[in-house]
Design a protein around this nucleic acid. Structure first.
Length: 214
DNA sequence: CACCAGGCAAGTA
DNA sequence: TACTTGCATGGT
């Protein structure tokens, strides 16, 4: 089954250029950001990340040692701060119990195993798990989010009730399993969707990708 | 003022 | 299995 996905990618990349995702200094920062950004604007996440950085707490060990109530207050701007503090704690617990706190050890495991392990952590669902796999661990896994579905739905490539796995399979089977490609493609879809909600793109040669519904 | 943002888990039927 | 609800801040 021939897909239009490679063509769409070329047009997006040609028009917008590289997006330089994920915006973070370390893989661990990516993981923290992935949890903090759940149903929350990235702008608010940046404030929370900034609070942690100011106090030099954005490392696995420091974050794990931080009392839960303190953590919750620091990440307040990201919203759902009590829930997310518990989720971050569950995640660092997992990193220590499963990998002795070593991301290098973690990176050695097979992707399918890692994904199952991540999904077993309270507070990590499919999108968060895949964001961690792709953007922190550089595994070739396609991340599906609300933006991805919105764009695909608008262009008739999925149905309204398409599930996560179904949507992801479109990309995973229609493209080479390349980390760099999946990284850029997801970021470009987000860029396209955002561009539409804000400025309203002029005619730009992206005709099938012109008009994203709200 | 209402609505939204790079979800997820727990509860209900 | 398939809904529904709670979680919460800051920007538009």
């Amino acid at each position: 089954m021939k897909t239009v996905l490679p063509g769409i990618y070329r047009r997006l990349h040609g028009y917008f250029g590289p997006q330089h995702w994920w915006p973070a200094e370390t893989p661990f920062e990516v993981m923290v950001g992935a949890i903090l950004t759940q149903n929350t604007s990235w702008q608010n996440v940046e404030k929370a990340i900034s609070n942690l950085k100011k106090k030099k707490l954005l490392s696995l060990r420091a974050l794990h040692a931080l009392p839960l109530a303190k953590l919750a207050q620091l990440i307040r701007p990201a919203g759902y701060y009590n829930v997310k503090a518990a989720r971050l704690r569950a995640f660092t617990d997992f990193l220590f119990s499963a990998y002795k706190g070593s991301l290098s050890r973690m990176r050695c495991r097979k992707t399918a195993i890692l994904r199952r392990e991540l999904l077993s952590v309270k507070g990590i669902g499919e999108e968060t798990a895949d964001s961690i796999l792709l953007y922190a661990l550089e595994k070739p896994v396609f991340v599906v989010d609300a933006y991805t579905k919105r764009v695909l739905l608008r262009h008739g490539l999925i149905r309204k009730d398409a599930g996560y796995a179904e949507t992801q399979a479109l990309f995973m089977s229609g493209l080479k399993k390349n980390t760099r490609l999946f990284n850029e493609y997801h970021a470009l879809l987000v860029r396209l969707a955002k561009e539409f909600c804000r400025k309203r793109l002029p005619r730009c040669g992206l005709c099938p990708l012109r008009d994203i519904p709200r």
